[in-house]
Simulated assay, not measured.
Amino acid sequence: MSKGILVDIPKCIGCESCSVACKLWNELPWDSQEKNKTAEDRAKEPNKGLWPDEWTSINRYDVKKNGSSVGRYVKTQCFHCEDPACVSACFSKALKKLPEGPVVYDQKLCVGCRYCMMACPFDILRYEWKKAIPGVSKCQMCPSRVTNNQETACTSVCPTGAITFGDRDQLLAEAKKRIKDNGYVNRVFGEKEAGGTSWLYISDVPFEDLRFRTDVTTKSLPSYTEGYMKLTPFIGGTWAAVLAGLYIYNNKNKEPLE
């Protein structure tokens, strides 16, 4: 059964435990200055985006609720679409969707075309411009854990229960229950967006105020991208030569796996 994660936005306190767990589990580089920052320090910073070494980000938004100003924190990462456009756009098969939910990336197969970045409706994927052998970067949703029925690193450390791991269908039912019980906005973001995503969000304030892309189509995006990808074989030998060159360049300095 496909897994998912439910994000209950009002419960998030911006502690960034999830960000730390993500970096530690995935062995991502860590800025030493970041280690000493408190949640209050981070709240004063400008909104952060995703970077090759930042697979998740927490941003604070000051919004209006019942005439008063309130602060809400939003965790952002790859949404792990149920029918991902990035996978459909990747003709080198560097991206694939696992039955358990994660959309994973294998740099060894990547030719650096960045079609996946153009296809993503949420603008999540990042290109590793500073690396000699660049690839794309994003949250992998801890596939080695999820495929063994273990929760993701980020959900395992959340102190408030703002992010919950489980079966997607069950989480969707729980999301709708919480909406009814707590008077939240009557919408589960991720239920239908881009054909549905593994990450589901509920909120007590409009998603538009939290900078969600609420205009994303509910139609599965591969139905659009596959039409364009069918044209690829007709481009001819020149494009094939370019791809071959990209592959050789991106892999020429890689050491063989032991």
Rank of each mutant, 00 (worst) to 15 (best):
S2N: 08
L6A: 10
D8K: 08
D8Q: 08
K11D: 06
G14S: 04
C15R: 04
S19I: 06
A21D: 05
C22S: 03
L24F: 11
L24M: 08
P29W: 04
D31S: 07
S32E: 15
Q33L: 07
K44T: 11
K48I: 05
W51Y: 10
W51D: 01
P52S: 07
E54Q: 14
N59P: 14
N59E: 03
R60E: 10
K64Y: 11
G67C: 15
S68F: 15
G71A: 15
F79A: 04
D83F: 13
P84K: 01
A89V: 10
L98D: 02
P99H: 07
E100N: 04
P102M: 11
V111A: 10
G112H: 02
G112R: 02
G112D: 03
Y115R: 14
A119K: 07
C120V: 01
L125W: 11
Y127C: 02
E128D: 09
A132G: 04
C139G: 01
M141F: 13
S144V: 02
Q150L: 07
E151R: 03
V157R: 00
C158H: 04
G161S: 08
F165T: 01
R168D: 03
R168F: 08
R168M: 05
D169M: 05
L172A: 09
A173M: 06
A175P: 01
Y184M: 12
N186C: 03
A194T: 11
G196H: 05
T197P: 00
S198W: 03
W199T: 07
Y201K: 01
Y201M: 03
S203F: 11
D204W: 06
D209S: 15
R213D: 11
T214A: 07
T218P: 02
S220G: 02
S220P: 06
L221W: 08
T225V: 15
T232A: 14
T238S: 12
T238A: 12
A240V: 13
L243D: 04
L243Y: 06
K254C: 03
K254G: 00
K254Q: 04
